[in-house]
């Protein structure tokens, strides 16, 4: 066996051991070493050279990047997630005819969809979705993300929140928690426009707070314009399109003058 390959697999074993112990610092260090070592294989993307050990090397590299993605979720580092995911992607798209499919493929693709949803990158979300085959769309991990997006767009927020209980993979929880925060802000924005007032009890329930104290703090920080009296939250209903009392004379004069100028140019 190729000595380089042996070195990588030994290091990878140590990484996996550290990873299982939840020792993230050691695993991150080992991971950077592994990535450097991987650059020496010519069979990996973008070269895809046809070396004798190609299949073996590709498999181990894919495995390493899959672990890297999961690690970045555990360390809650979204930038690292994006980087690792993009490095991993060619293994799924361009090397699929040479390698047996990975069992981790759909969970990771679903995780990426979820990340795009959390970061509100909906256009990219749909671009990624187009790449998936119809069988992939049936996979519970992918379906979960797709349904979340739909509920999110419709405004069925409680469906988004209840989806947290049915996550298909433990790594999804991190993003689901992030999503819950986004959902709370959305609900607050919608309630502000839709209701005249809400009782404190209802508002607490709707915005998913466990105590009145949390609710009050949230209002103080995010929406200081809301008013609390008689045990109810009153939303400021300003900016109504009141009938126009005054004629905006200055604006009208400006417009008329510009029409005159343009017409003169034509005639």
């Amino acid at each position: 066996m190729d000595p380089k390959l042996t070195e990588v697999s030994q290091l990878f074993d140590r990484f996996k051991a550290a990873f299982l112990r939840n020792d993230y610092e050691t695993s991150t260090n080992l991971l950077s070493k592994l990535k450097v070592l991987l650059t020496e294989f010519r069979s990996l993307p973008p070269l895809f050279a046809d070396t004798p050990n190609a299949v073996h090397e590709l498999t181990i590299a894919r495995d390493i990047y899959e672990h890297a993605v999961v690690l970045s979720v555990k360390t809650e580092d979204q930038d690292a997630f994006e980087r690792d995911f993009f490095q991993l992607k060619p293994y799924y798209t361009d090397a699929c005819n040479r390698l047996p499919p990975s069992p981790q493929e759909f969970p990771i693709l679903g995780l990426n969809l979820l990340r795009l949803l959390v970061q509100n990158r909906i256009a990219e979300f749909h671009t990624e979705l187009e790449l998936l085959s119809s069988t992939a769309l049936e996979n519970p991990c992918i379906k979960h993300a797709v349904e979340l997006e739909q509920s999110f767009m419709e405004g069925a927020y409680n469906r988004v929140l209840s989806a947290r209980q049915t996550v298909p993979h433990e790594t999804y929880v991190y993003f689901m928690d992030l999503l819950a925060k986004t959902v709370r802000d959305e609900i607050a924005g919608c309630s502000e426009k839709a209701y005249d007032y809400l009782s404190v009890k209802d508002a607490k329930q709707m915005l998913l707070f466990s105590s009145d104290q949390e609710l009050l703090e949230y209002i103080k920080e995010e929406h200081p314009e809301w008013e609390i009296k008689n045990d109810s939250v009153f939303f400021q209903k300003a900016k109504e399109s009141a009938p126009c009392k005054e004629i905006p004379s200055l604006q009208l004069i400006n417009q008329t003058l510009s029409y005159a100028r343009e017409l003169e140019r034509i005639v």
Binding site: E154, G155, A156, Y157, N158, E186, I187, G189, C190, S191, E192, K193, A194, Y195
Partner: peptide, 9 residues
Amino acid sequence: ESIVSKAIR
């Protein structure tokens, strides 16, 4: 309720 409130917003 939440769908309607989003539509209003």
